[in-house]
Design a protein around this nucleic acid. Structure first.
Lengths: 152, 152
DNA sequence: ATTGCCCCGCAATTTGATTGCGAAGATTGT
DNA sequence: ACAATCTTCGCAATCAAATTGCGGGGCAAT
């Protein structure tokens, strides 16, 4: 889908505030409400806007800690990787999971309430996925930035 | 803030669809619209709901590739780290940045249109931040999961 | 220059958000 | 156990926002 300057302004605004009123959005991007809303709907239908979400404060629901875990699989055949992928995707504590080329086979970002909470998760869920040979966990000492706003 | 079961259901629903109509939300969590909306407002004021955002499809705006970069700083003094943190946070291509203990000093997730786009970013922005000694980039071959839905 | 197309803005309608109020249930202290 | 109090609910009225249809203007191609 081709995006013009107004579309980009709409996307920027909705990435900042996904619940912004259409009137306000229209004023910000320099349109009247109806064509503005029409563009938003088009962007949704085209899949440029994937969805709208509420962003929670992890600490306030007892998920304040982040862990990065690198994972090595026993083998790198499609079956092992595929099974790992489907299983790890089911774990709600896993916020991100990437298959990697090179050193490790996969990397996941996990949220947990505490180190013990994480340890339990690792031993009871992550390590039990068939094919997982080894895991190594890194703990960030501080989060500098964590956004969903793509540059546009 | 203490959360009861209805609050958690509200949070789960709004993480799935942050623009859900209040009537629909109320029906889903088993309340009438007014107390439901009141709870949502309280959750917002308490900071449990941080904000609402539109989630874009990165590929559709030409930011389809993800890169992980580990960063080593020349020194680990507060000044060097602090300067790095403020500068890296300004870069819109940087979606996540964590300070790490152990091997590397920081890790960032960067989005870019292409490998060349990323290379340019690395040499023109990342490596030029004062104190940055070395960087190593890993490219995920596949994204298995990438969500903002915290388990609650 | 004229035709056709696209996208705008206006205005009317519908839908949803918001607020005040009385009632029901839970909690605390006597 | 009972009464006072606090909390949170649901209803209903009001208000604001979303949505849709329609006419008009600008731009491109013929």
């Amino acid at each position: 889908m081709k995006l013009d300057d107004i579309d980009r302004r709409i996307l920027r605004a909705l990435q900042r505030d996904g619940r912004m009123a259409n009137n306000e959005l229209a004023a910000e991007v320099g349109l009247s409400p109806s064509p503005c809303l029409r563009r938003v709907k088009l962007l949704e239908e085209a899949g440029v806007i994937d969805r709208y979400v509420a962003v929670l404060n992890p600490a306030s629901i007892g998920k304040g800690l982040t862990f990065f875990t690198r994972i090595w699989l026993k083998t790198q055949d499609e079956d092992t990787i595929g099974h790992f992928a489907t299983e790890v995707a089911k774990l709600p504590q896993v916020m991100e999971c990437y298959l990697m080329l090179g050193d490790c086979d996969a990397m996941v970002r996990v949220v947990a309430a505490s180190i013990d909470d994480y340890r339990r998760f690792q031993s009871e869920h992550l390590s039990r996925i068939r094919g997982v040979q080894n895991v190594k966990t890194d703990v960030p000492s501080q989060t500098i930035k964590h956004t969903s706003e793509l540059p546009i």
